[in-house]
């Protein structure tokens, strides 16, 4: 007999961003912003190359990798040869194009995106291990970063019913 299952709505998402390409960072930012816009609590943990997204000097200069990405095509849908991606300037050109396409959809630069997420109550954290490794200090990071914490501390923030951890 089919039982009617009652679903409880999602209450909190904890998003771990470990990569620093435009698409990885924006996937995390869109998910966090989308959560707060739906009234879902969002906490973000940036680690390893994901730290670029909250590092003042790097956050608005992210790139998309043009090498080893089989899903990438040129305008018109022609496959993008990896060899072409290796040429100087190509990665910068592709990255600029990605940013332009997102700007057309009213998707903001990284710093402004963090403004939006935190305006909605989202929280931003940096990974202790990775900041030590990359020799980054709190002052190198966006003012939206609440604290530099360990993954254990982050898990402690991930409690409660209907919480999900998302890794990108």
């Amino acid at each position: 007999m089919a039982e009617k299952k009652e679903e409880k709505p999602l209450k909190k998402v904890c998003i771990i961003c470990a990569k620093g390409t435009i698409e990885d960072v924006y996937a995390s930012l869109v998910m966090a912003n989308g959560a707060v816009m739906e009234g879902i609590e969002a906490k973000m943990f940036f680690t390893f190359f994901g730290l670029d997204a909250i590092t003042k000097k790097k956050m608005n200069k992210l790139h998309t990798g043009t090498v080893g990405n089989p899903a990438m095509t040129m305008p018109g849908g022609i496959p993008f040869p990896t060899l072409l991606g290796m040429l100087p300037g190509v990665e910068a050109g592709v990255s600029a194009m990605m940013k332009k396409q997102m700007a057309d959809l009213d998707i903001p630069p990284v710093d402004e995106f963090l403004d939006m997420i935190t305006a909605g109550g989202g929280e931003i954290y940096a990974c202790k291990l990775a900041t030590d490794m990359f020799k980054l200090k709190k002052e190198d990071l966006s003012e939206h970063v609440i604290d530099i914490i360990t993954i254990g501390d982050f898990y402690a923030l991930a409690g409660g019913d209907n919480t999900q951890i998302i890794f990108t």
Binding site: M37, E38, G39, D106, P108, M116, G120
Partner: peptide, 28 residues
């Protein structure tokens, strides 16, 4: 196409204020 960013730039209210006005669903 409506976005909270657009509303935030309208000069009427900033995004934080928009969340305050419409808690849990600034655009919806």
């Amino acid at each position: 196409v409506l976005t909270i960013r657009k509303v935030g730039k309208s000069g009427l209210v900033d995004i934080k204020g928009l969340y305050k006005l419409f808690p849990g669903g600034p655009l919806k």
